[in-house]
Design a protein around this nucleic acid. Sequence first.
DNA 1: ATCCGCAATGTATACGGTTACATCGTCCGT
DNA 2: ACGGACGATGTAACCGTATACATTGCGGAT
Lengths: 316, 316
Amino acid sequence: MATASRALNGLSSVTAKTRAKIEAAAAELNYVPHSGARSLTRQRTDTIGVILPDLFGEFFSEIVRGIDQAVQGAGKNLLLGNMHGSVEETGQAIRAMRGRVDGLLVMPPNSSAEMLDRALTQGIPAVLLNAQAADGSTPFVAVDNYAGARMVTEHLIDRGAKRIVHIAGPTNNRDASERERGFRDALKDGLGIADPLILPGDFREDAGRDAARHLIASGTRFDAVFAGNDMMAVDCMAELSEAGFAIGSEILVAGFDDIPLARYVTPQLTTVHSDITRLGSAAAQMLLRMLAGGEPSGEASLVIPPTLAVRGSTTG
Amino acid sequence: MATASRALNGLSSVTAKTRAKIEAAAAELNYVPHSGARSLTRQRTDTIGVILPDLFGEFFSEIVRGIDQAVQGAGKNLLLGNMHGSVEETGQAIRAMRGRVDGLLVMPPNSSAEMLDRALTQGIPAVLLNAQAADGSTPFVAVDNYAGARMVTEHLIDRGAKRIVHIAGPTNNRDASERERGFRDALKDGLGIADPLILPGDFREDAGRDAARHLIASGTRFDAVFAGNDMMAVDCMAELSEAGFAIGSEILVAGFDDIPLARYVTPQLTTVHSDITRLGSAAAQMLLRMLAGGEPSGEASLVIPPTLAVRGSTTG
DNA sequence: ATCCGCAATGTATACGGTTACATCGTCCGT
DNA sequence: ACGGACGATGTAACCGTATACATTGCGGAT
């Protein structure tokens, strides 16, 4: 049985004849090694764990795609966990991974500090997605929301907008607050406006419609809208359009994310494009490197700069 | 150590005092049971494996969402495998799951027979997604592509279309051929047409554009298009629209899948809506039942009837 | 022919937990 | 006060694999 193990794992010290016999028998019984048992003696599982706030939606789909791309070449499996956005479940999910994975990719909910401790004290290599560790010890890969928001706001200013309204994302959402910060700074630096109009939102399409209705009903004077994400931008634009505003000339609209839909609405939506797939693959590659090289996991963090996708909604 | 095991697993025969001490110690050391080792002695892993042709894209995202919903309540984990559409990799992926999962949800590539044998001979419970086993022994959950295609074709006929063109999906794709079959039968029964015009396609958007251009260039007379999926339908519609045709009156267009985009294009796209989330959750529930009850896995297969989403592209 | 060395195979232990079984202690009945 | 029964804890075997170490067998050198 030891010889069988050696033969099937391609160890050198097995006679060709013996190996052939073993392989024949294995095929006959259609034997498949039990990964669970195997992972006990070897110290690896050849699996990396991914913990996300949700498993569906285009954003996560793209992340997983990137991770898969990076992981596929390395012959690893993917174990997905879903923490459904809750902090407790995050801890649970991480603990459930014990013994199943060699490393972890975690996209934490918005408050993360304590959870991260868990991950670290387990001594298991981890990379954070779109979030920075409180103590800076865990490497991360994130999209530069601040830079993206600045970029698109500056674009609106360049196009001549003077009164720009922002539809914010959910409170306590890191992405949302970074985008808002970028917006504020760009407005202050570009137009000297320190107290811009910011409407509440939650990243859902309805928030875009509500914001547009509110703007119209309140008679606010405005010439551009920067929505915290594309979903809100699209529906805001639709509502404004129905109300008779000329999008792209009279009123400029921009979003953030570059969802596929952005190209299909009329006019096409100007937005900030982040390479989400790259976010996932970069994180996975970083983790793979940590697993292979035993790197001290320091300072290797990566911030992915987004790009501006200028389309009809700001160029008439 | 036996007592510790009992205490942590909530067995009854442990003194409250002892249990408290053990739990304190466990918390102190921040002990987490090693799932790999645990799965050796128990015969379960509390994990179900999912093998899909791809991990990204909206379709798979929705499937995973459904599976996650069903699985979450049962306290199971999800192990995702990607076979990248290849038959060999499917076998590999299934084998890699040995010892890691209690059951399998498999969405096989288009030729499946032999792979299924693998799954069965391993004696591990499995449910097929959107595919029927050759020997009928493995339960499956599938969308009724045939019925959906009939339904939408009959709708086009009801709306007065006489010369309906179909843009087919990839050859060898089961979904595609079922939809084409539904189209043919509906046309034969409804209009007595036995040899309809069917243009080749591959489910990608470009195929929709190409088909539209070909129709226009060849001067074909037609008053409706049923595309094998929404992606092709959307781009076909865009191309026809640019060419000056009045979509919804002069020319009717319908698709299949009801992707979110379908509601955002102008006019909104009439299409066949399948509850993909339900596809996933139904399959997962079926598997969970098999795992729990040890059901003989027979005859429980489920075919999900799609519904028609009538929108502007067929109603002017 | 004997012995040594090396290559091939067999034996035993470890991985980390669960659980059947053995042991220990205590309380109760007589 | 003693014995039995039962409840709590300790001991050992097992899950399936990998590997350190022991053993076997063979060929070549002396």
